[in-house]
């Protein structure tokens, strides 16, 4: 029994999975509205953007960096994409790749600044976050772009039974990211640099290039999240991204990522986002104050950090 517990503890996402199963069972038992088709659709839909936000932070955590500007970058991309489509009449098929490229470029900027100056990524991305938000607000004067292409809005709201079409994007991204991190050379190098920068450099990996790569990827993922958010809301709001910061760290860290780098889990992050979506949904069903979401998310991060620490000590992997 003890051996079994130990083996379960070694699988880092076992706790989250248990929490998800327990939570779903509890909600299904307490609220008849929980298992309805519409509620499952709502939950899956809220899961889409959140997952990509979590991934955008996860790839920077993988190299031991952080990206405070995920939300600001997402907001900027959202209004730029919205502006392109509404004011300049750019077709959807062009606007989306361009928007993702802008996001990747902003990330590249973060990466180059961090790498070239050798300054802590926290302070660099704090500064660029403010700059991105400034450009966003300067362009829009806080007024959203409402006139989005119908195809995009339909993609954001249509569904096949309980399956929102929006979910297709995060599924593709999850598979690609999983393959990238586990099967490709740059992906392995990313984790190697995060795990031990010195050893990675000695084995011929360019630490600077990998850091820049992680930030660029983070920018592209945040931009993808921003486009999904625009599709979901049906308009390009300048406030998109303003509440992403906490969530972006919560998902990978609850999923077992180490802030020191080198250790991230695509599956863990995905499960963490499912758990967060479940909790938010449960609170809506229970009609509690929306302020509780913030409180619980904070408590959840602390609990996850404590649990990870306890697990490391118990299993002796510390």
């Amino acid at each position: 029994m003890n051996a079994l517990l130990r083996r379960l503890l070694l699988v880092e996402w076992s706790g989250i999975l248990a929490a998800i199963i327990l939570g779903s069972a509890l909600l299904a038992w307490l609220s008849p509205a929980f298992l309805t088709e519409f509620n499952i659709y709502v939950m899956l839909r809220s899961f889409c953007v959140a997952l990509l936000i979590g991934f955008a932070q996860m790839v920077t955590l993988a190299v031991g960096q952080m990206n405070i500007s995920v939300g600001a970058l997402g907001g900027l991309v959202a209004v730029l994409a919205g502006g392109m489509m509404e004011k300049m009449g750019v077709p959807l098929a062009v606007a989306i790749p361009v928007a993702i490229a802008i996001g990747a470029f902003c990330g590249l900027l973060n990466g180059i600044l961090t790498e070239r100056t050798g300054i802590n990524g926290f302070i660099i991305t704090l500064a660029t976050a403010s700059a991105f938000t400034g450009i966003n607000l300067g362009i829009t004067q806080s007024i959203p772009f409402y006139d989005m292409p119908p195809a995009l809005v339909a993609f954001g709201s249509d569904r096949f039974f309980a399956f929102p079409y929006l979910l297709i994007a995060p599924i593709i991204v999850t598979i690609l990211l999983g393959i990238f991190l586990s099967r490709t050379i740059p992906g392995r190098q990313l984790l190697a640099v995060g795990g031990n920068p010195h050893a990675a450099e000695l084995s011929g990996i360019s630490r600077g290039r990998i850091t820049v790569l992680a930030h660029t990827l983070s920018g592209a993922l945040a931009a993808t999240a921003a486009i999904l958010a625009v599709a979901q809301l049906g308009s390009a709001q300048p406030t998109i991204g303003s509440d992403w910061l906490l969530l972006s760290f919560a998902a990978p860290i609850i999923g077992g990522a180490a802030l020191t780098g080198g250790h991230v889990s695509v599956l863990g992050t995905t499960l963490a986002v499912i758990l967060i979506a479940l909790i938010e949904n449960g609170m809506v069903l229970a009609k509690v104050d929306p302020y509780w979401v913030q409180f619980v998310l904070g408590a959840l991060i602390l609990a996850a950090v404590w649990l990870n620490r306890w697990r490391a000590v118990t299993t002796g992997t510390d």
């Binding site: 904070g298 991060i301 602390l302 950090v305």
Partner: peptide, 22 residues
């Protein structure tokens, strides 16, 4: 806990603010 100050205060910021709003 020996955990990074960044993550503890990020979580507690949300905890404190949430509690205040509640």
């Amino acid at each position: 806990t020996g955990v990074n100050a960044f993550i503890i205060t990020l979580a507690s910021a949300s905890l404190f603010l949430g509690a205040m709003l509640i």
